[in-house]
């Protein structure tokens, strides 16, 4: 049993130091410095990591209880990565419940168009509009327990704003299907089949693919984790460099 420790009243605590750096160091960092130890050397990494979490937020700001990935954050980051000569590879980690169709497709298209090596890893979930983002990388991984939900836009998807026609939603859906077909090994026909499958989802029609199911369907390249994803990314970077050496 622990002895009850004496807790000093708040006013007796030392005043925080004047904020000159804008950031207060942790007590542990301070104590390390007191003992004369140096900071951990920072090595410039050649790989950057983009995490796409929660809802992909697009034209509408979602209510604050949603955890969101905003495309106005992501797109400039991707442009900066593309321009930075020190960055050679990008790891995209997904745990998303989907979101705005146009924002998701915009992110996916930027990743496809990048000249740097890209590897994606679906951890937890990569649902709905997360599917095109996952397949947009040069090589894609899915964790064994991760899931991807494929369902039609017009049933579970929600439409905000002006009255939508059925044809409009059909067009939106075709954009997603065409993108996925182009950037993965799945056929349009099979993707549609998965999309309209009945009996798997309670509220909707569609399919939930778990880990290796997504690989067997040709949507994702391999089952794996972060170690596998990073070594694949290093391989791709190496291959790209060798190719460039041949050209020059």
């Amino acid at each position: 049993m622990h002895k009850m420790e004496h807790i000093s009243p708040p006013q007796a605590q030392p005043k925080p130091r004047k904020q000159t750096q804008g950031v207060r160091k942790t007590d542990s960092t301070e104590s390390i410095k007191e003992f004369g130890q140096v900071d951990v050397p920072t090595v410039q990494t050649n790989i950057h990591c983009l995490t796409i979490i929660g809802q992909i937020e697009g034209h509408l700001i979602l209510p604050p209880q949603n955890k969101t990935t905003k495309y106005e954050h992501i797109i400039p980051q991707l442009v900066a990565i593309e321009q930075n000569p020190d960055i050679e590879g990008l790891l995209i980690i997904l745990n998303t419940v989907g979101g705005d169709v146009e924002a998701g497709l915009a992110i996916a298209e930027i990743i496809v168009g990048m000249s740097k090596s890209t590897v994606s890893l679906v951890l937890g979930g990569g649902h709905s509009i997360g599917v095109p983002v996952a397949v947009s990388a040069d090589y894609s991984f899915i964790a064994e327990t991760a899931t991807m939900t494929i369902h039609p836009i017009r049933l579970a998807g929600l439409v905000i704003g002006v009255p939508q026609t059925y044809e409009y939603l059909d067009k939106m859906q075709d954009r997603v299907i065409r993108f996925v077909e182009k950037h993965s090994d799945i056929s349009t026909q099979r993707f549609r089949e998965l999309m309209f499958q009945t009996g798997e989802l309670t509220r909707d029609i569609g399919t939930v693919l778990v880990g290796k199911d997504a690989v067997e369907e040709g949507l994702i390249n391999a089952v794996g984790g972060v170690g596998g994803a990073l070594s694949k990314l290093q391989d791709l970077i190496k291959q790209r460099k060798e190719k460039e050496d041949v050209i020059h």
Binding site: H59, P63, P64, G98, G99, D100, S128, G161
Partner: peptide
């Protein structure tokens, strides 16, 4: 014009008591 493509139900995404972040 915005189309959300998500398996989450609409009432869960758009539910709000206070819209200021």
């Amino acid at each position: 014009m915005s189309v959300l493509y998500t398996p989450l139900p609409l009432e869960l995404v758009m539910f709000t008591e206070d819209s200021t972040s």
